[in-house]
Simulated scan of single mutants.
Amino acid sequence: MALGPEEANRFAALLEERQEELVGAWTDRVAQSLRGRLSRTELERQTGELRKGFHAALAGGAAELGQEPADELRAQLTELSSSRARQGFSATETAVSVFALKDAVLTVLDGSDASNLRDYVAFSGFVDQAALFTFDSYVQIREGLIADQAEQLLELSTPVVKLWEGVVAVPLVGTLDSARAQVVMERLLETLVETGSPHAIIDITGVPAVDTQVAQHILKTVVAARLMGADCIISGIRPQIAQTIVALGIEFGDIATKASLADALRFVLKKTGR
């Protein structure tokens, strides 16, 4: 049942005339669902702002959430989703905060009037649209936050450090996939340009296993560094990794390899006559 102009105006008037009771009842229900994770003052502020948004949308004649009179309400719902996503609330908890408006309205609605109950069904549909919009917005925002965090962790997990004048190192820890290999290459090349270092050490001590794919990523990084005029040494070749490399038939060619980072640094210093 769609919300018509007359019903929208009636509920807009109800939201305005009984606003204190509505905000109180709405806040009570949201507080129960969030179990004290937000202060009542903050919840009253949020429900009060949303009440104004719903009132403006309905007073403007919005029968659907996607219509122009509901623009401000959609913006408020998006802001609520963003705030809750950053605070660690779930998508369900966020949507329930909007669904709770239906219970709050029911407490102040005259249930003895059949027309009121019929109109309430249409109003419930409008609130359902708002809650589902909030849920979808939350999911999109949360996915964006997770992607940003993953990118930040990726950058933190691939540091490029200066060991000596003219010598930088990339200590790799964990699995090296295509996305991470690209970050490693970019950060190494950027550091080579910034420092003007002619030598780079790629340390794979923290890489649990080396397969053909990992080896290809390392070789591509070495080739890219060489194109920048830097010589690369691979360190951290443990006995198990050495056996795997031989078994897979991986060839590092003329790339110098050392058992440890200390051996690699010693090799570079000796090579440069220091």
Score class of each variant (00 low, 15 high):
G36W: 00
F11S: 10
L15Q: 12
A59P: 00
Q182I: 00
D103N: 08
G60P: 06
G229H: 00
T92D: 09
L22P: 01
L22F: 02
G53M: 12
R51S: 14
A147V: 09
S90M: 10
G111D: 11
V184Y: 02
V121T: 06
V246T: 07
L3P: 11
K162M: 15
G144E: 11
D148F: 02
D71Y: 05
R18S: 12
Q213Y: 03
G249C: 11
I241L: 11
E21G: 09
L261P: 05
E155Y: 05
G196W: 05
R51Q: 07
R266N: 14
G4H: 08
Q243H: 08
K220G: 15
G166E: 01
V98R: 05
R35V: 00
S260T: 15
L227E: 05
S115I: 08
M1N: 06
L109V: 12
L50Y: 02
A104Q: 08
K162P: 13
T134I: 11
I202G: 13
L77Y: 02
W164L: 15
Q76W: 04
P69A: 10
L50F: 09
L219C: 11
Q152S: 09
L189I: 05
T78F: 00
Q129F: 08
K270D: 15
V183L: 03
V168P: 02
N9L: 14
T272Y: 01
G48I: 11
V183E: 12
G125N: 07
G273F: 02
S33I: 00
F135V: 10
G236S: 13
A179V: 01
